[in-house]
């Protein structure tokens, strides 16, 4: 266990850092232009969701953020690192990426070992790894399954294992690809709670999602993509209220926004409390008038 005794520089978790996407275009070998001049700056600690129809370029964009794809034009900076100059394995110490399908990564015989895979690659000591694994499993409420084979869990639980395996890496930036897919109400609440906790710790959380209600509840900034370009970028309350714009990329506004628009309320709210407040304010104003 040479790695355990001799941690690499990656072993120390990096501090908060911004992501800068500068005029990035990307063309797949098949000739598909997946990104066309995308520019974004994601501040440290920001919670940002990327929405848009299938084929809009969402996955291609986030794969640029940890270096899985290198821009055909432009550049991506993670902190002060240009992703073209560092391997994906090195960038993994800064950007954690939770893939959509858990079965694409599970390799170990126990849930505990699977969650410890990332920290091990980053050169953490055995003691550090044990602490990282325990903390990550506690977050996804799978501590009791540490010795279980991952394939003895349900698909939704395996998805949580892959989430824990990236949480255990303690990266300052996390990307979740469709995190709520296949989750029941309990799973949704659990993942929502994890996002809130990460935000509270000042970590950058990015997600690609078709679950607009989840996006509205937990992400302050929303980027709408269509045809490899950024169609809209701004505060969730503003962007998700633009029903006509969202319709052009086959995204429906959250239920509360649609309800607020149907009731002709003066502004849309993304939370139930906010909606009730707006409704009461509107009634009050109506009564006074």
């Amino acid at each position: 266990m040479k790695n355990a005794q001799r941690p690499t520089p990656n072993a120390t978790p990096a501090g908060p850092m911004p992501i800068t996407v500068e005029d990035v275009s990307f063309t797949y070998p098949s000739g598909t232009h997946a990104l066309r001049g995308v520019s974004l700056r994601i501040a440290p600690g920001e919670a940002m969701a990327i929405v848009g129809e299938n084929g809009a370029g969402k996955t291609t964009l986030v794969k640029h953020l940890n270096g899985l794809l290198k821009p055909s034009q432009g550049r991506v900076l993670v902190g002060d690192w240009d992703t073209r100059e560092h391997s994906v394995a090195k960038t993994a110490a800064r950007v954690g990426y939770v893939f959509q399908n858990p079965d694409d990564q599970i390799v170990e015989r126990t849930v505990g070992d699977e969650v410890g895979f990332g920290p091990k690659q980053l050169g953490r000591t055995e003691a550090e790894r044990a602490a990282d694994v325990a903390a990550a499993l506690a977050l996804v409420e799978l501590s009791d399954y540490a010795k279980t084979h991952p394939y003895d869990l349900t698909t939704a639980q395996r998805k949580l294992v892959t989430l824990a395996s990236v949480l255990a890496m303690r990266t300052p930036i996390l990307i979740f690809d469709e995190p709520t897919m296949g989750q029941d109400a309990r799973g949704l609440a659990l993942i929502g709670g994890i996002v809130e906790r990460l935000k509270g710790e000042g970590r950058t959380v990015l997600t690609i999602t078709h679950d607009i209600d989840f996006c509205a509840a937990h992400f302050g900034r929303v980027v709408v993509m269509a045809d490899g370009q950024v169609l809209a970028d701004g505060a969730a309350a503003d962007v998700l209220a633009r029903a006509e714009l969202l319709a052009t990329t086959n995204v429906e506004p959250p239920q509360l926004v649609r309800l607020a628009q149907a009731l002709r309320l003066p502004r849309a709210a993304l939370t139930v409390d906010g909606f009730v407040e707006t409704l009461q304010g509107s009634r009050g104003a109506g009564g006074q008038g």
Binding site: K63, L68, V95, Y97, F117, V166, M169
Partner: peptide
Amino acid sequence: DAQRSRGL
């Protein structure tokens, strides 16, 4: 890609 993203 998934394994490289976990530092492999």
